[in-house]
Amino acid sequence: MGLIISVSIFLLAIIVNQSMLVGQTTSESVLDFPKAEIQDIRNEVFRYRSAEVDPDPIQADIETLTLYRKSALVDISNTSERLTIHYNNGVTYYHEVIQI
């Protein structure tokens, strides 16, 4: 009995020690990752494309507002056959080319 208790205390002590590792916690990493941002920008791009309006001022809107409020670089470019979405906030880098 004593042996079991001491061994388990020892193991628990090791587990406690392991948890001391310095770094970001999972929730901080989740907060850091701009999942919603990227989904939002993609969604917005498809939305204004389907509305068939002049895309240039809207792209400037998205780029300016994202830099101003979120400190992230966005670059959206259109050609007749492809659409490029580029997002970079220094930690996460996202680049998508959509063939139309």
Binding site: A13, V16, S27, E28, L31
Partner: peptide, 19 residues
């Protein structure tokens, strides 16, 4: 001794609510 050496208050879990 082991527990008092290593026990600590983790402020990291406050971010779970934020998340």
């Amino acid at each position: 001794l082991v527990v008092s050496t290593t026990v600590m208050f983790t402020p990291g879990d406050s971010h779970i609510i934020d998340m």
